[in-house]
Design a protein around this nucleic acid. Sequence first.
DNA 1: CTCGCCCCG
Length: 703
Amino acid sequence: MIACNNKHYRVPNWAIHILRTTTVMSLTFWKPGTAGPGSNLDRASQVEESIVPYAPQDGYLSVRGQQERLPIFKHREKLLYCVEKHGVVIVVGQTGCGKTTQLPQYLLQAGWADDGHVIACTQPRRIAATSVAGRVSEELGTKLGEEVGYTIRFEDVSSKEATRILYMTDGMLFRETLVDPLLSRYSVIMVDEAHERSIYTDLLLGVLRKIRKQRPSLRIVVSSATLDATKFMDYFLHGSDPNECTIVSLEGRMYPVEVAYLAESTPDYTKKAAEVVWNINLQQGPGDILVFLTGREDIDNCCQELSDMLPSLPARATKLVPLPLHAGLTTDEQLRIFQPAAPGTRKAIISTNIAEASVTIDGVKFVVDSGFVKIRVYNPTTSLASLATVPISVASATQRAGRAGRTAPGICYRLYPKAVFDKLPLTTSPEITRTDMTTPILQLKSLGIDDLMKFNWVSAPPAETVLRALEGLHAASMIDEYGKLTRIGEQVAECPVEVGIARMLFSSKDYKCGEEILTIAAMTAVQDIFIIPDGAPGALAELERRKFTAEEGDHFTLLNAYNAFTRYGKSAGWCKSHAISFRAMSRAVSIRSQLKKYMQRFDLPIESCEGDSKRLARCLVSGYWRNGARWAPDGTYRSVRGGMVLSVHPTSVLFTRKSRTGWVIFHEMEETKKTQIRILTEIEPEWLLDHGHAYDDKRKEQK
DNA sequence: CTCGCCCCG
């Protein structure tokens, strides 16, 4: 048995490597000129203000390597001094240090929002933007939407005149640059959670760097949880004045979290997770358990495993309640996660990565970390997206551990040895390196950024991805042979949909089916319309879904479902009785009305095809012509481009039935165990040629 | 013959 300073803790095959007396979450203090743990801080001599603890109590502040004690108001002044003096301030601080809520308030009080200017704070997720805005507006004692507001897609709770602090999604601010390229209404832009490296964070940083050169009065605060801050500093310093950028570090306030590692690697982390949860329940005091696994399949298995063990639980032991958590849950199921455990019971929440940053559950004292995550990766050569299970990064592991210390001291059990942890990559690869760039590149072109090879990326997307995107844009006539935006390209760049879908919206004028195409465009943008639970309820749901099934395929089926939803008063009750997600349908309604406004702006008629399904299908082909496939005798399809073997996704109405013509177009393909295509519609093969020929002819002309 | 990591506009 391994000794541990927690005397109640007895699991023989664990090796306890880190037992912190203070806190896992507090930042390692580093001095300029020395390298911090696992990070390249060699050029830290350029760093002037290295440590400014944020805390209601005082703490340490280090200026040029000298530590001194300062009361809190001086820390605030120091921070503001940095923003005043430097164009770009990189703020390092873990969750809980208050940077998201406090920093914008400091800036407001210091007068950065005078003269009608606005302080923006961007978030990668909508939920964060809305909830933080609510909290800050409460702290300031103002009504949400006045002095403090938020802007996310479909929700603008802000006022042009009154709002001084604006929380928004990074995608929203990036989109705003299309309208106002200098973002002139803002005095300070704080890019929060930059370490997550969402694609819009990266694009935004790229644009902000350019804006700074033209509008030096703009201040940028980049906030990041990990010590990869030097990467951002290098980015902003590149070839400019050394005063352009500095790093400030804030100390987080978290309860201590002990971290325990498995002595040896496990071949089956799902089973191991169940075992560890079981042991925690028997050996530890009160507190809920949060388990990180990779996907729904893992989660269901783990819950099943625990449920099977429950009958053998000693009568006197705490009762264990396994609860799955992933994005596909209904609202009711999600609410169960947040209900406090009943007396004498303990919640074991078995979750995907959603609980790492998006969903916060208080009362968790024990975290079990499988060390794996599922991420989406994109292969530009085949233009195929797939889901890969990969080891997490050090940053992720730290964030997961921190979930145990939100309300009390906790313990994190890592289901892998310390030696494995030491070899983990520091950060996950940025999204921009593993995603399709067609839409982002169209938007950059619209911003006048034409030379993508010269553009200063924080991390450049693979050249192949850029070439694929340009090829796709050219094929859809969004750019000309010189790479310049066409008239339609300019308009499509403004539309919040994928290029193919936008193409469909525009050609609906020729096919006289704007009404229906609008609905289909909105429905394909929303996932999980039909709720298919496991077992008997699943079979019933399947029967309900058949009521909407259209002969032509999935696009028409989605159209039927939307029309029925509208016909029956858009009610939640109707959705429930037809196994349809009310949440998803409401979102489709919002998206449809937003897209309708764009169509009206571009003078596209919104007329009905009056039941002429052929016309509608041909309009679909105008957007999807590159996604054609032909039936093969073994029941799969072959892609028109490249002859790939494609299996129909089981949720398709064409899963059990062959396309009558033998030809289909599809909305998207994804690689799982097989390469699967989702949302299919049967077509006549010559419809494909209309568009394919036009594209090929254009290419021949060039040669 | 069977399937959904997480997000953004």
